[in-house]
Design a protein around this nucleic acid. Structure first.
Lengths: 337, 337
DNA sequence: ATGAAAGCGCTAACAG
DNA sequence: CTGTTAGCGCTTTCAT
């Protein structure tokens, strides 16, 4: 356990030159003679000199670190986002400091503060469900720290954003069902006061409209969890004879519905085709595997980091804020024909 | 976009005192008069002064940051680990810098270096599958940076460790099958050259032995993915009539087997009971829900951070290295009676 | 071509 | 009780 890392000063002392010479030699400053440069460089290599990123950051007023605030890490979509962010950031010479808000406003505030204290160059934020007040995020922007919001964006703050095109995803999913021959399509939806509930409902309606199918509000059920499907089991079964397709707002709801139907003798997809939304790992292991809308978390993560770094590295240019809309794609499997 | 954050120096200048007075007042140093203290504190609050963590770290030679190197973030077990780490670290005043090796040795080396450059106080590492050489990690230890290995530990380095008790998990799972009345238990296993393959196999054998059931090597199949189950479908079905239980090395294999059997008229759990291992989110949504061994990623993460912080905060005491063995528990669902 | 000095923001030993 | 000074590790004028 040697206590200290070797520093430029150490090298300078040992080699009998000044710290500035070492610093310059190390970064190939033209003023330094080849001789000195080689001497310093080979010695530095020998003693495994590594610059202290802390000192560098303090000096340069730039940490090359991005702060991430995410509601929860254990979630297929969010962990995919993190993975995409990490991969791109790494490639661009940035590192990530990651905080989990656990959907807790108070913790989100503390996290934001901590990241600012660490002087991250920018922030990547998906706001917690309990956040109503955005002072902490405004505060970051006022301190010159740009934010890119992703997925759970904040409308009160003008900023770069990356979101999923829920409308389009739902439209694609529903259209697929129609193309499979379905006409009476049940929509298991999230509440409309949630953005995804509303948008996916609208996409569903749009697809029907495009094919001149009337929207039957009896076929739109507020039902967005596995548990709720189980509770509504009877109602679902009472509708089953008259429907030929189901579009669910997420995969677990789709799967639960599929199972209830199967247990009662319905064949998927022969009697009823089913499409989900999200494409977590669960969609591939059901029987039949679930057709669903792929949500591209990895890509959203990359895109968010791309926007952020672009802004960080062009501080002079007054870039207008962009909203990147990532269009999900249909992942056709065997729950639809 | 104000460029700069306010500093102690700024406050000192404005208030007409010295920076050290401000510094002391802020941290309730006893030498400072109440008057000055209140003056400074209220002013600091008014201008939202926040200490620069970078400067502090440089000064104190302590960053309060833990570096994490993990093979992949998008994996239920690993993301649970991260979540547990983050939660505990947060509570103890530490932050996490997270790097993903993507199972790539080269990247693991670079990541380690980057974290050392950032002067993280300690390292949490699960080694990549492709890592054969441990110089980079030895190097960290030589630099006085303690490492806690978790899950994929490194035997060449003497260090703190947190692992799952695979043997015990397998024993519990198999015993559960036996208690459900099974006697002819098929084990779908990972290759024995992998530690988990070996340990879980041994646990399976131990349970049989404890109940005086002979081990039948024909009932131990190297088969540890969904795809492999599909490939071995016929073989599996040929064994099916003579077995009454299955213990699979992971959930997806268990589920695939369950599905193949169901499609061929077997009733789960009536004809055959099935137990998996790992308890990702998929286990709850199958029909019937899968009994499995819960792997406690969250707890492993917390434990790893606990060990690391304990070591960091008792640098003087020569603590012996500990290996924490987290025993998984049976999660009984409906795939077993 | 090299060195001395100042400073990034903060703290702590030493003076007074 | 408060200020001065030095220094954490590094870069970058400004001298020489």
């Amino acid at each position: 356990m040697k206590p200290a890392h070797i520093t430029i000063k150490d090298i300078a002392r040992i080699l009998g030159v000044s710290p500035s010479t070492v610093s310059r030699a190390l970064k190939d400053h033209p003023d330094i003679s080849e001789e000195t440069r080689n001497l310093v460089k080979s010695f530095a290599e020998k003693v495994k000199y590594r610059p202290n990123a802390l000192a560098l950051s303090l000096r340069k007023q730039k940490t090359n670190t991005l702060g991430l605030i995410i509601p929860e890490i254990v979630h297929h979509f969010f962990s995919s986002v993190i993975s995409g962010m990490e991969d791109l950031a790494y490639g661009e010479g940035y590192h990530m400091m990651i905080c989990q808000s656990n959907e807790n406003y108070y913790r989100e505030v503390i996290n934001t503060q901590a990241l600012l204290d660490h002087r991250v160059d920018g922030l990547l934020v998906s706001v917690s469900k309990t956040t109503r007040d955005y002072k902490h995020l405004h505060n970051a922007i006022e301190n010159g720290i740009p934010i890119v919001f992703f997925d759970r964006i904040c409308n009160e703050i003008d900023s770069d954003r990356v979101i999923t095109d829920d409308f389009e995803g739902a439209r694609i999913a529903t259209t697929h069902l129609i193309e499979c021959g379905a006409r009476k399509i049940l929509h298991l939806s999230a509440p409309r006061h949630l953005l995804i509930g509303l948008r996916r409902y609208e996409g569903y309606c749009q697809a029907l409209k495009n094919h001149n199918i009337d929207i039957d509000e009896k076929l739109v059920l507020k039902c967005d969890t596995r548990e709720e499907v189980m509770t509504m089991r009877q109602h679902l079964l009472s509708l089953a004879p008259e429907i030929d397709g189901i579009f669910a707002v997420n995969d677990s709801t789709a799967i639960a519905a599929m199972q209830v139907l199967q247990e009662n003798g319905y064949k998927i997809p022969d009697d009823i085709s089913v499409v989900g939304f999200g494409d977590g790992p669960i969609a591939t292991i059901t029987s039949p595997p679930l057709s669903t809308v792929e949500q591209k978390g990895y890509e959203i993560g990359r895109e968010a980091v791309r926007l952020l770094i672009q802004r960080l590295e062009n501080p002079t240019v007054q870039l207008g804020f962009q909203t990147k809309i990532v269009t999900p794609t249909l992942k056709k499997r065997q729950s639809t024909r």
